[in-house]
Every structure is written in structure tokens, then in C-alpha cells.
Write a protein that binds this DNA or RNA. Sequence first.
DNA 1: AAACCTTACGAAAACGTTTGCGTGTGGAAA
DNA 2: TTTCCACACGCAAACGTTTTCGTAAGGTTT
Lengths: 343, 343
Amino acid sequence: MKQKVTLKQIAKELDVSISTVSKALKDSVEISLDTRQKVKAFAKLYNYKPNNIALSLKNRKTKTIGVIIPEIVHHFFTTVIGGVEKVANEKGYNVIICSSNNSFDKEVINMEMLASGSADGFILSVAKETQLKKDYHHIEETMSQGMPVVLFDRIIDEVVCDKVIIDDAKGAQTATNHLLTIGCKKIAILTTVDYISVGKLRTNGYLRALRAYDIPEKEEYVLKIEDIDNCETEISEFLKDKDIDAVFAVNELFAVTAIKVLNQQGKKVPDDIAVIGFTDGILSKHFIPSLTTISQHGEDMGIRAAKLLIDKLEGDDEVTEEYRTVIIDTSLVQRQSTKKIKE
Amino acid sequence: MKQKVTLKQIAKELDVSISTVSKALKDSVEISLDTRQKVKAFAKLYNYKPNNIALSLKNRKTKTIGVIIPEIVHHFFTTVIGGVEKVANEKGYNVIICSSNNSFDKEVINMEMLASGSADGFILSVAKETQLKKDYHHIEETMSQGMPVVLFDRIIDEVVCDKVIIDDAKGAQTATNHLLTIGCKKIAILTTVDYISVGKLRTNGYLRALRAYDIPEKEEYVLKIEDIDNCETEISEFLKDKDIDAVFAVNELFAVTAIKVLNQQGKKVPDDIAVIGFTDGILSKHFIPSLTTISQHGEDMGIRAAKLLIDKLEGDDEVTEEYRTVIIDTSLVQRQSTKKIKE
DNA sequence: AAACCTTACGAAAACGTTTGCGTGTGGAAA
DNA sequence: TTTCCACACGCAAACGTTTTCGTAAGGTTT
């Protein structure tokens, strides 16, 4: 087991000083051509690689980006990570990913861990618990120590920093509009409880679309689901004998569960009832019927977030002072779960 | 923007030496109670956190685990990561995740990057390209520098190290057996090309099961799919007018695609044809019909892999010398896509 | 021969820690 | 008064780099 070789060892072996080795490897003119070649040959032979830790300590930066997401086993978040990685690798940054598991405490712990030397900046989508608790001290603190933070998707209005979001309300409006334009009039919505920022926004978009079409909003058409893991019974209950012609679900799972429930209740999708989802993941693509949905372009979000962060990391102080909010366009992906109602 | 506070600053402020501060924070008896309290109060006030980088440099270990997987947007791999994180966090380790995107080059780059100071050891599932290329120098090199490596899922027989796998062949045999026991006799298999280790193993398991039942294997029942992204046409072609009563697919996507194709061809699953998959992901759970499948227990794999690695990292040298291969049990998850054929 | 300039290299500090050991101070024992 | 011993603290080295500055040797001017 040969240990990793250091400058010191090379220096000793070649009977020169550490500084000479360092300079030689950097092709400094200070060092004679002869020595340079000798050192480089030796370094190559022993597969010398500079120690990142030492460099980080010296340069006071780690060249790594910390990403903290609420769930790791989640298609949307992983696509975002994919985007972040893409940009990061291009620009020579490493990416550390941690999941908060939707726990406030774990979010804080992870953030502090990474903040104490492991990362130069953060890309973060906050945990449910954090949104509920409204405690953002860890984020504020990290920023006040000079580490930039970019929030995405599940953001916090009160925190002033760069943000990358989609226009959730607009996306939901687009979805609802689509249902309206194909002729649906009685549209139910399956959404989350209000403290989930994106859920609330999507609900708002749905309501806005209805108003624009002068369709009165009915409370009985709105289901706010508390426990996502047991949504089937709630949805089944809600949909039972309801006089509707369309369902807008704020995520994939609610959408496919709705279809499943509707099937059980003897309704056909899309013939009897149209269903539209939100987030374009594996399920939407491969389900039968495949789901019409709103694509969030997760990879783009990751790309933009990473760019914002790296700009701030490498920018001069002018850039550092201003914060930007990037809004990623959503798009309607038409598939089989909605179709035009024949008049 | 207050910078992060260091021992040095505290020392200066309190007019003591750095070592005194360090010792005081560690409650060393060398330091008077009075000073200790003063230092601790001050440190708390300024929210002092020791710098991980400096500690890593000093201790020659980073307390982080590098995880390299072929794809990040992939349910199975993320569940494994979930398991790794669980154990890692418990034991005070950080987790850095990189994806190789199934590229050999990126795998090497990531590994070298993390190996030069960022991680103490690795948990790795190799890229397709690496399996094809059979070039494992980066892994060997990392290990020879004293960093332990745990391979999982897509492993390499030739590399001697700890491994965590499922018995792919046995799992496939279980799946095929299940089809046989419910009365199927003409079972097709949808598998990958042979250089994907797990694909080949699963094919072997399928064949073994047939032999055990004295059912002759037919080449026309085996489809080795090259391009996973366009599997639908291949599968459609393959399944057309084929006289079979069951399909064993070595992954989720092949399974649902098969069902889709069969539907198009006017066959009902499970009534006309039974379908069984491999890997228990989102699709299997929520598809209609829900998929009978072989669960790989990804989280368990992650947990075991992390434990193996940490054992090696913290173990004395006896442990270091022996390598273990952990085989995680697979299990059959019965759902709707298979059912007993009435005689 | 004295003064000066290149060339080629080394010493040392710095990044932020931890820790073994040395040491000044004061009080107690002799 | 001298000797000794805790006590409480500081020094310095070490981890692996980079980089500024200093300098010895040798050659070139006057």
C-alpha cells in the first residue's frame, strides 16, 4: 500500500526543496529547464496529485457546491441535481449532495456541517418542516458568513438571496386553462395543505384560471391532502359520485392515484374525465394513459441555480450585492390523459 | 458580512494563546476553570465552529464518503444513497455523491477528484462503459493508495474488494419460478445485452429456472435489448404474434413497456399474459396493473455498503486485510400483473 | 579588482487545527 | 531562605500547499 506522494517526498527524493518542486511542476521560469523536467518526470512516475484539502485550506475555498434537498429519492430533485452537476463539473466544481429528509433539524445540521469548510456556497430547496416552522436562522447565518445561497423550488420569500423558481401559479393556470379549452367546466383540484409553498401557489393559479373564465369556484371541488402516503383513500372519498369532468392534480402521484380511483369507480380517463398533472416524471411518461402535465424543466432549474451560485462565488463585489430571481418557464406536455370533449 | 471566526481571532480578542483557546474549548484540565468559561462563552457568542478543512488536513482524514453511481436520476440508485446517508450520518460521516453518467472518463475524473483529499473511501457502482472497457486502473489505484472501495450492484469480479450485491441470478430464478408455479409454460425474457453484468446474471437465472422445470429454452423467447431508450419498437416487434403466456422483464421499464405493447396488441395483463419485473420502483407500485416484481432492497444495500466501508475505515489492520461480499436477499413482491392461471 | 547583475534555488510564512512539552509564577515544604 | 511542585498557560511542530522574498554562485561590466 503505497501512500499518496507529497511534494515533500518528491523534494527529499530529488534532494531539492519543496518550493523548487512546487515551482517546477508549475513550469516556473525560476527553475532551470533541467530540474523542471526531472521533477515532472518523477511526479508523473509516482502519480503525484496535489492534495485538495491542503489547497482548500490555503486558498480559503473548496471549489465545491453544497446541495441540500428535501428528498433524494425523488425524480424532480434528481433532475435538478443533474443540471447542477453539469454546470459544476464544467466549471471545475465538485458537488456535495445532502438530503434533509424534510426534517428541519437535519437541514440545519447538514448546512452547518457543509458550511464549516466543506462548501463555498449552497443550492437549497427547503424542507417541509422548515416551511412550517418558519425558522430560517441557519440560512441567514450561512449567508452572513459570506457563503452565497441559491434557493430553488421550495423557496422562502422572507429570505433575501438568489432564487430559481418556476411560476407555479402560472403553470397551474396553464394546466387549468388547458382543461377549460378542451371543454371541461367542472374541474376539481387535488392539492396539498397550504404551508407547502408550491402547493398553495398552484391552487392560486387554478383559482385564477377559473375566474378568468368566469367559472365560480366551489369549495367542494378542492381537496387539500395532508398525508401524501395515504392519499388514495382521501382521493377516493373525495371523488366518489362527484359531478366533475376534469381533475387537476398538483403532482404526479395525486394524478395517477386519481386515475386509479376513477377507474375503480367505473370512470374512464380521458373519455369520461380528463386528468392533468404537474411535474413531468417517470410516471407521467409511462403510465397508461400517459399523463398530460406541466413540465418544470428540473434540469434547467439546476443549471440556472448553479450558474447563479458560481457567478456569485467568482464575481467581484458588485455582483455580490444584487440578488436575482430566475423564473423558469413551464410548459404543457400533452399526452393521453386529456382530450378534447366533443360537443 | 462577518467572516467565520477562528481560534486565532478568539485568542487575540481574549489575549491568550491559540492553544489555550483550543484546549479550553475541549475542557482540558490544563486550563483554569475561569479561562475555560470565558473562552466558551466567547466562542458561543461568535458562533465558533471548527474548520473542517483544517481538521481534515491535520487528521489526514475527511470523514466523508464518496459515492459514485452511473445515474443520479434513477430510483434504485437513489434508494441506495438513502441507505448510505442514513448510516453515514449516524456515524458522523458526510456523503459526497457524483454521477458518472455511465461514462468511463467521468468515472475516472470523479474518482481522482475525490481521491485527492475529498473522501476517505468509496462506494461505487461502475458505469456501463467501464464494464465494457474492462479498465479498472482507477479503482485499483485508489485502493493501492489506502482508500477502501466498496462496489455494489454493478460490480467487477476481477477487482478484489468489499462488495454488496443481490443474487441477481437467484432473483431472476425466483421470478421465473413464480411464473412457472402459477402455471405459465411459455415464458419470454426481456433482458439487456450481455456486457451489463446484472442483465447477464438475470438471464442466467431465468435459464436455470427453466431447466429445473425441464422446460427447453428457446432462443426465440429471449430478447436482448441494446438501446433502452427506444425499447418499445424492439419489444413490439419481438412480442408480435408470439405464442407466450408470460414475460419476465429484467427492469421496470421493460416490464411496463411490455404491458403497453401487449395492450396495443390486444392482449390483457394478467389475464392473457402474466408480466413480472425486476426492481421495485415507483412505476411498479403505481402502474395499472401494478407490477409483480423482485425487490432489490436498495436501501439495505446502501446500509450494508456504508457499514462495510466505515468498518474498514475505522478498523484495525486485521479487518483491513479481508474482503467480504455481502449478498442482500431479494424478495418477490406480488401484485396484479401476475395471477394464477386457472386450469 | 571591484561592483553589479543573472540565474537558480531555498527559507519561511500562511491557511486553521491539535497536542506534547517547556516554562514562569506562586505557594508550600524543608 | 532555599527547594520543589502544582498550576496555568504558551511555544512550536505538524498536516500539504503556494508564493514572496532572500541569497549564493557565477558571470559580466567598468
